[in-house]
Design a binder for these strands. Structure first.
Lengths: 97, 97
DNA sequence: ACTATATTTGCATATTTGTGCAAATATATC
DNA sequence: GATATATTTGCACAAATATGCAAATATAGT
């Protein structure tokens, strides 16, 4: 694992490692259909601008993807991608040299 | 997942989501035998006090365990425990409701 | 064009966090 | 007890971060 990869992984973990952002992720976990930001406001104790910023972080780290549908922007999880990266780390940690 | 569990998971991810701490974890990954803090100083660009603080965070979150051996304190990873928690999150994220 | 709704952004601010240095503590050896 | 080595802690500080509010922007419907 080189420095760039380590930094990217650290950034992913940092994105997930904030309580309100993790709450957003959980909320999206439980949705079959994508949700817009207004809807996601209800599940965490920050206002719309805060949710917007959190979603931006999650988006930059590839945790969520977004698609504009008219006035709304619908967010959904990159489920397999994120799960894959977490399992890769789990594998690294678990493997004794 | 209740609030307390979510907070604990966020804390774990936050602990892992800092570059120098993740570097320490990688270093310990590659060790068959435990290492002391002085030795771990070499793999990350912080001084002994910084490494001590990082190891304290990792220890509080259950990422590493420590055992004093004379003057030194030897650190090693809680491999299976950490891997398990990461995989649990991966499973939650990947499972469509 | 006007209005309503959804999202982003600029600004200010309080809090957290990572860091180094020096001092304190712990343990071993002489 | 004195000295050496390993680790922790108090202090100060700079940088990052999360947050709310108000204004700006985007889009849709009338």
């Amino acid at each position: 694992m080189n420095q760039k990869e380590a930094q990217e992984l650290a950034d992913l973990l940092k994105a997930l490692g904030e309580y309100n952002r993790l709450s957003l992720v959980y909320e999206l976990c439980q949705c079959k259909a994508p949700k817009n930001a207004m809807c996601l406001c209800d599940c965490c104790s920050v206002d719309a601008s805060g949710v917007s910023r959190h979603l931006k972080v999650l988006s930059q780290e590839g945790v969520v993807k977004s698609e504009r549908k008219g006035r709304e922007i619908q967010y959904s999880l990159n489920r397999t991608e994120v799960a894959k990266r977490l399992r890769q780390l789990a594998d690294i940690i678990e493997t004794t040299p």
